[in-house]
Each structure stands twice: as structure tokens, then as C-alpha cells.
């Protein structure tokens, strides 16, 4: 069940449906000549190289109500750090297959430095602060993905 009601006021969406990266970038950049750089990140469901059964699917659970607030807080922190023209974050929930897109972050700014940095910051913080959980389904059954220390380290280097 989608929890986000699309609207111009919100740059954050949590949804089951796939997203169109090109359409999202075009929508941000259209008619806004102050934008000189758009950086985007797309996260995909990855095959598990070490898993003999292979990954058949992944289910993303979230905390409806908190998810949007957490993402908006992360975007707000990015806007406080860099001069940004626009930010769009889409995170999917529900059952996804290998190769499916999970998350999109698009950052528009005057110059590439701000766009690249803010895009990475948003992803690093999303990985440790936004209430999503992945459950992998393999031939051997389902198991919850463990949080990675590397993600905490990536977020910590921004020193928020």
C-alpha cells in the first residue's frame, strides 16, 4: 500500500510502484535555468554472489508514518549543508526482484560539487536513519539482512 500522496509540496515518496529515472530528472530540471548540475543515485536489488540458492526476491518492510518524516529530515539536513535547487527521493517497499530499482536520489544544484556531495550524503544517512528493512528470499528460506558496519562508518564521516 503506497503511503505517499504525490504532490508538489513533497520531494519524498515511499511507494510500491517502479520509478522512471529520466522522467524524475526531467521534471526537476524543466524550466529552471539556475540548475547547472543534476546528480542521481539508483540502488538496485543485487544478486548474492556467495549464496548457493541465489536470491529469488527481496521484501522491503518500513515504518509507515516515520519513513516520510525520516526521509524529509535527511533532505532537510542536506539542504542546510549545501545550496541545492531541488531534491527528490523515492524509496520502494514491498516485494522486489533482482535487478529491480529500490531507491532513487536526485539532487539538483548550480554546480556539480554540491550535487555530488549532497547525493552521497543523503544516501549515507538514508542507509542508517530511514526505517526500512530488507528480507531476502532464497531457496533456503527467508532471512533479514544485517546492518553493515561500513554503512555506519559512511554516515559517521559526515559528522552530523
Amino acid at each position: 500500500m503506497p503511503v505517499d500522496i504525490p504532490g508538489p509540496a513533497s520531494s519524498v515518496s515511499v511507494q510500491h510502484e517502479p520509478f522512471d529515472v529520466g522522467a524524475e530528472i526531467a521534471a526537476i530540471a524543466a524550466g529552471r535555468p539556475a540548475i547547472g548540475a543534476v546528480a542521481s543515485f539508483v540502488g538496485l536489488v543485487r544478486e548474492l554472489p556467495g549464496c548457493p540458492g541465489g536470491l529469488s526476491a527481496m521484501t522491503l518492510e518500513h515504518y509507515p508514518g516515520m519513513t516520510d518524516k525520516a526521509l524529509e529530515d535527511i533532505v532537510g539536513q542536506a539542504r542546510g549543508r549545501w545550496q541545492l535547487q531541488d531534491v527528490r527521493v523515492i524509496h520502494r517497499v514491498g516485494r522486489l526482484a533482482p535487478g529491480d530499482a529500490i531507491v532513487l536520489v536526485v539532487v539538483a544544484a548550480a554546480h556539480r560539487g554540491e550535487a555530488f556531495a549532497a547525493c552521497e550524503f543523503i544516501m549515507d544517512y538514508l542507509k542508517t536513519r530511514a526505517p526500512f528493512w530488507k528480507k531476502e528470499e532464497t531457496r533456503d528460506g527467508g532471512h533479514w539482512v544485517d546492518a553493515r558496519d561500513a554503512d555506519d562508518a559512511a554516515a559517521a564521516r559526515w559528522d552530523v
Binding site: 540502488g43 522491503l60 531507491v103 544516501m123 538514508l126 542507509k127 530511514a130 526505517p131 528493512w133
Partner: peptide, 29 residues
């Protein structure tokens, strides 16, 4: 832990009417 949909630490106050969530470390993205 989150109280009223904000992440908090273990020392955070709890009051009548609060929504309190317990969950493992997040793994989105």
C-alpha cells in the same frame, strides 16, 4: 527505538499517549 516516529536513545522519556517503536538496525537503500 523511536518515540513518536523520531529515533531516540535508551534514555529518552516515555509519556502516556506516546507511540514507541522497537526495531533492528535499518537496512534500506
Amino acid at each position: 527505538t523511536a518515540v513518536n516516529q523520531r529515533m531516540v536513545d535508551e534514555g529518552a522519556a516515555v509519556q502516556d499517549g506516546d507511540e514507541i517503536a522497537f526495531f533492528p538496525p535499518v537496512t534500506g537503500g
